[in-house]
Design a protein around this nucleic acid. Structure first.
Length: 708
RNA sequence: GGGCGCUUAGCUCAGUUGGUAGAGCACCCCGUUUACACCGGGAUGGUCGCAGGUUCGAGUCCUGCAGCGCCCACCA
């Protein structure tokens, strides 16, 4: 007797009708939390979700990342691991504040100074809260099996404690210092920004060749004439025969009303081929020049202020830089000191956020010293003994070089080392209001590190920390550090980290820095960098191009399973994914195929023996897929399953079985195990089908993986 | 300037340790025989960027070249 097929299978599979209910079932089961998982589970498998910024809504790049990690975590859960995937969101200080400031400007015509610090922080916090819930509901729609009971936000109480503790310990180790250094100053945003937040634009510029005075022996070329009032030296290459005789001489001049004292020095940083081969050294307004001035112990007067206006006596006083440049050119002309003016193309660095031209300025900032030796109390990093002397840079290198952090993609490993080798101190202070405030308090000349005010006369440092400071603690701050929690004991180091290559330096390397310093243990065992999801024409998705794809719309049209498969199949980890709606549509059809296979199989009796040759064939495929998953060839595992199920199981085996009841047991075997293998990739449709399988005991998400 | 990567069918891309080129989509033809028309069957389509080399054998390894892309630096 053929059993009755449940009625739902008589219609095509409808993801929108089932996905919500399935997710609810998963959540209510408690299995997202590894503490509730059935059976003995010795080994932990931990993944932390790269926390999305609370600036907006989920985009297709997040969807891709969610799909990838969910596949990995579901696979490991089914393999019997204590699988934990921690959700969270990032306050992302600068972009979030900038976003809210923009809204306030637009709607109320007010700047942050009109509103004031407390009110602005309040509004940004509110915005973040709203944005947070939007994003989280979207992550759920993807089917992400995240343990919501361990949800973390970079600015919640536990994470604030972690940030404070990390700061304090690094400060006490002498690795955090305050120093005057050249920073990227954004005159429009009135803040320092990191190198990563600047963009270079090619612009037309004039290259002026001039002398400081009639008796000055060497002509100098520059595009920034107005800064020359801040010059303290002229540098030439040590091997440059033309100028060797002048090295060591000093000259006084009055340059456009400003007295200057210029020393001629030799420094290898100078490019003899460029311009006249002599560099006017303006220590306060150029990084290169600052470094040269440091090497030669030169004075470093500041001549441009925070508003990009001249801060000198005489005719340039108070002028904007561009205007001052003209005035200097006129003055040089009238004095007969201007030798040449050429049109050139110049790369100008601008602020990614405000578009303003960056003004390099010396500022008092907080820094993390990556080269300073310190004694590491405890270390599990191979090659770094507990109690030995090391540096942060050395730790970052050792972590990957030793294989403690496995970075299997050779190209990215090379990029990482290249970056480490060129690493400079990390500027961690930002002149904005939203974020973790620097926990340093001042009273006159005194200063102290404290989480709360040490007393009435103390005032706190006005700056906040670079958002990456808190993000860098994420692999252990989410597990309760600095408390010695059971979670930290069980789930650290995390197992698998898969960020986009864009943030290899920004985030991955800094997590390694913080993890190795604070715990003496690397933050993750393996890093698999993934690519970007791009538009079909290969361009990045961006607001300005208006070429964005809303993942929710895709889910509504094709279902989350189809979206997951469409994003995963076809591109190995690390290479970019071209977004193709047709492909997603194809996997919706696949979900329906699976649905109809079930309809047929459920109409058969599960009688007879499982055919050994078909079982063997399946098991070989299953082993293959398992190996692919273990080695993170996720796209390939998905594709193999797709082909097996459609072209082999449905097209051949199932056709062959028609009218032959002895196939029954085989069909059930193949379907049940196909569902298990497909579950990490297409969790919704497989769980929904599983619910109707006669052998079902518990949710498919906690079934045993068919391959040991 | 330094680093990394890509170039395979009309489009998007696979090709895991070198063994006679693959998928999806699109296009064309045929088909509604009860799992599925959200389907089935079939056909067309590639000198694997170019030039050398190693090898019995190269899309796969090596060298050079060209085009494209990304990251980092920022020459005043």
């Amino acid at each position: 007797m053929a059993p009755d097929v449940p009625e739902k299978f008589l219609k095509p599979y409808d993801p929108t009708a089932t996905e919500g209910a399935i997710y609810k079932k998963w959540e209510e089961s408690g299995y997202f939390n590894p503490d509730n998982l059935p059976g003995e589970r010795a080994e932990a498998f931990t993944v932390i979700l790269p926390p999305p910024n609370v600036t907006g809504t989920l985009h297709v790049g997040h969807a891709y990342e969610d799909a990838l990690q969910d596949i990995v975590i579901r696979f490991q859960r089914m393999r019997g691991k204590k699988a934990l995937w921690i959700p969270g969101t990032d306050s992302a200080a600068l972009p979030t504040q900038a976003r809210v400031e923009k809204d306030i400007q637009k709607e109320e015509g007010k700047s942050r100074y009109d509103i004031g610090r407390d009110e602005l922080v309040k509004r940004v916090t509110e915005f973040a809260k709203n944005s947070e819930s939007t994003i989280l509901s979207q992550v759920r729609r993807m089917g992400a099996s995240l343990d919501w009971s361990r949800y973390a936000y970079t600015m919640d109480e536990a994470r604030n404690t972690a940030v404070f503790t990390a700061f304090k310990r690094m400060f006490e180790a002498g690795l955090i210092y305050r120093g005057n250094r050249i920073v990227n100053w954004d005159p429009k945003g009135q803040t320092t920004i990191s190198d990563d937040e600047t963009l270079y634009e090619e612009r037309d510029a004039k290259l002026y060749t001039f002398r400081y005075s009639k008796d000055f022996p060497i002509p100098v070329a520059t595009t920034r004439l107005e800064t020359k009032v801040g010059d303290t030296a002229v540098a030439v290459h040590p091997d440059d025969e033309r100028y060797r005789q002048y090295v060591g001489q000093e000259y006084d001049a009055v340059f456009c009303d400003v007295p200057v004292h210029i020393k001629i020095i030799a420094d290898p940083a100078v490019e003899p081929e460029f311009g006249t081969g002599a560099l006017g050294v303006t220590p306060a307004h150029s990084q290169t020049d600052w470094d040269i001035a440091e090497r030669h112990d030169l004075p470093r007067p500041q001549v441009i202020n925070e508003y990009a206006k001249m801060e000198v006596e005489g005719r340039l006083h108070g002028k904007k830089t561009a205007e001052a440049r003209e005035l200097v050119a006129e003055w040089l002309q009238s004095e007969g000191l201007l030798e040449k003016v050429e049109d050139i193309k110049q790369n100008v660095s601008t602020s990614e956020r405000t578009g303003a031209i960056i003004e390099p300025l010396p500022k008092l900032q907080w820094w993390i010293d990556v080269n300073k030796p310190f004694t590491i109390p405890y270390s599990e990093i191979p090659g770094v003994a507990s109690g030995s002397e090391t540096t942060l840079k050395a730790l970052m290198r050792a972590a990957v070089e030793s294989g403690a952090v496995d970075m299997p993609q050779e190209g990215f490993r090379k990029t990482y080392f290249h970056w480490i080798d060129n690493l400079r101190d990390w500027c961690i202070s930002r002149q904005i209001w939203f974020g973790h405030r620097i926990p340093v308090w001042y009273r006159g000349e005194e200063s102290t590190v404290s989480e709360t005010s040490p007393g009435e006369e103390w005032s706190q440092d006005p700056d906040v920390l670079d958002t990456w400071f808190s993000s860098a603690l994420w692999p252990f701050s989410t597990l309760g550090w600095p408390e010695k929690t059971a979670d930290l004991e069980t789930f650290y180091p995390t197992s698998f980290m898969s960020p986009a290559y864009e943030i290899l330096q920004l985030w991955v390397s800094r997590m390694i820095l913080m993890g190795t310093f604070h715990l003496g243990v690397v933050p993750f065992n393996i890093v698999f960098i993934h690519g970007l999801v791009r538009a079909k024409d290969g361009r990045k998705f961006s607001k300005s191009l208006n070429n964005g794809v809303d993942p929710l719309l895709m889910i509504e049209k094709y279902g989350a399973d189809a979206l997951r498969m469409g994003l995963i199949v076809g591109a190995p980890l690390g290479s970019d994914v071209k977004f193709d709606e047709q492909k997603i549509k194809g996997y919706k059809l696949f979900a329906n195929k699976l649905w109809n296979i079930t309809r047929f199989v459920l109409s058969q009796d599960s009688t007879g023996e499982i055919k050994p040759e078909l079982k063997a064939e399946f098991d070989t495929m299953a082993q293959d897929v398992t190996k692919d998953l273990e080695e993170y060839r996720i796209y390939m595992a998905a594709e193999k399953l797709y082909h097996y199920v459609w072209d082999r199981f449905a097209a051949e085996i199932l056709e062959e079985s028609k009218g032959k009841p002895e196939y029954g047991a085989t069909l059930y075997y193949l379907l049940e195990n196909s569902l298990k293998l497909l579950h990490p990739f297409m969790p919704f449709v497989t769980e929904e089908i599983w619910d109707s399988m006669p052998s079902k005991k518990d949710l498919l998400m906690v079934e045993h993986w068919p391959v040991a």
